[in-house]
Design a protein around this nucleic acid. Sequence first.
DNA 1: AGGTACATGTAATTGGTTACATGATTCC
DNA 2: GGAATCATGTAACCAATTACATGTACCT
Lengths: 180, 180
Amino acid sequence: MNTLGFGLLGLLTQGPCSGYDLMLKMEPIWKAQHSQIYPLLAKMEQEGFVVHELQPQTEKPDKKIYTITDTGREALLAWLPEPPDERAGRDEMIIKAQSIWLIGPEAGRALFTNREAVYRDRIRYYQELLDKHHQGGVQPPSPSSPDFGSYILLKRYMGVFTWQMEWCRWVLSLLDEQAE
Amino acid sequence: MNTLGFGLLGLLTQGPCSGYDLMLKMEPIWKAQHSQIYPLLAKMEQEGFVVHELQPQTEKPDKKIYTITDTGREALLAWLPEPPDERAGRDEMIIKAQSIWLIGPEAGRALFTNREAVYRDRIRYYQELLDKHHQGGVQPPSPSSPDFGSYILLKRYMGVFTWQMEWCRWVLSLLDEQAE
DNA sequence: AGGTACATGTAATTGGTTACATGATTCC
DNA sequence: GGAATCATGTAACCAATTACATGTACCT
């Protein structure tokens, strides 16, 4: 099984769920298309990590409600403590930034202004998710709560995107300096 | 052509280079294996974006020195100003963090202690690269200098990894709180 | 009339990693 | 003797995106 598979198992420890809902729940942390999730769930079922039962619906396609098995839980618990791979973070902006000197300050400014806005939107998005988290209890979830993972990840994304937004502004200030 | 291809073109605007050296130069910003780079360069040559000439070597395999063509430079300049795709940043640690509550505070602490060290190493690595940058001139490169891209990217990585290191420490502090 | 959400699936293609393959040189 | 660096390449596989496919309900 792959990393995405373990991500799905992690969500299923919090309760049975359809493939569609798993896709939505994965979105903030590890975006994957349904075309990747549905076949993976089927494969995971073949290998005994999950089982599903049909929930008939009228006027909508039937749902497949997946549940994690003991085998699945064991596999997840064995995988979790292993030191994670460090993955290459690939972002087109990196490649464009590398060659920014080629396109002149105006086009460069457009690129970074645009990016700054993208990061601003993402920060708003993650802030909203954090606010939802705080709706119930005002206290941050304890490390033994199932919500702890989402909580610390939201904080992580907030920080990463905030830094990148500031980085865009810093680059813009360098570009402006030259214009003077 | 794909994003990696444009990255290679960007490096080639700074001078002709072998596939092997391109791989090394790409490493800090967009890690790719030689098995991805060599066939891509061949394809890019077929499409007229680069040309190569053989540099015979004794006791070592001959080098293929690639040079960007006018077509290649035009394609790069047309691509650069387009707003970049926002790519999903996939890192196994994200999936593990999501399910951290399942493995208990000791194993969780091990995971984050390990990760903190990984980020610390990366910061040291990027700091060294930044120092090398500053060796020649003490002034940061101007936006019209070919080094400007590398310079701002190194700063970006420094910031991103610094934040993630601090995030690890913050999570560790939460885990410790519970232990008390 | 067109877009979004719900709900699932397959097929084609691209992107990326791992492994196989060769061969000299240098460092520990 | 074994690992690392230089230097290229192919083959097999896995991961991920895009497109094709179906069908209802609701909103504008």
